[in-house]
């Protein structure tokens, strides 16, 4: 009995950690930092949406977006920000503004030469958050 219990414990310890393949495909923490930087370069220069970020401190935003990307893609990070709904509450983000942000993200991923399939997985993961971001 004790042996079985020990085996179960060993199995639990060896259980596969959450899938971090997207995190690794992005180049882990360093790659994500580069991606966030490339993304925010575009966002802060994008006349379609940069008004939304006028009063947002870029280093703060970079840290939170980096944590979010890292955490959501299976990386070893804690996301210390508020929920997507909370952070966008009261901003009444429009559909076209969300699309502009997505385009900036894709442009940033292209600029970093991330493979198409990695870009697609990234979009697949984050696209469903649209409902928590627009119209809040």
């Amino acid at each position: 009995m004790r042996t079985i219990f020990a085996m179960l414990l060993a199995l639990a310890a060896a259980a596969p950690s959450p899938d971090d393949s997207l995190y690794r495909a992005l180049g882990e923490k360093q790659g994500i930092a580069r991606l966030v930087d490339a993304l925010l370069d575009r966002v802060y220069a994008d006349p379609r949406i940069n008004d939304l970020f006028k009063h947002v401190d870029r280093p703060d935003l970079a840290r939170l977006v980096g944590e979010h990307f890292c955490h959501e893609t299976g990386g070893p990070c804690e996301y210390t920000g508020r929920s997507m709904t909370d952070t966008h509450s009261g901003l009444a983000i429009k559909a076209k503004e969300f699309d502009a942000f997505v385009e900036d993200l894709v442009d940033a991923m292209e600029a970093l030469d991330l493979p198409t399939r990695t870009q697609n997985r990234m979009l697949k993961h984050f696209a469903p958050m649209r409902a928590e971001i627009i119209d809040q």
């Binding site: 198409t116 697609n120 697949k124």
Partner: peptide, 9 residues
């Protein structure tokens, strides 16, 4: 279907 077929959309 994002990343729907072998990682391609």
């Amino acid at each position: 279907f994002l990343a729907g077929v072998g990682g391609y959309n």
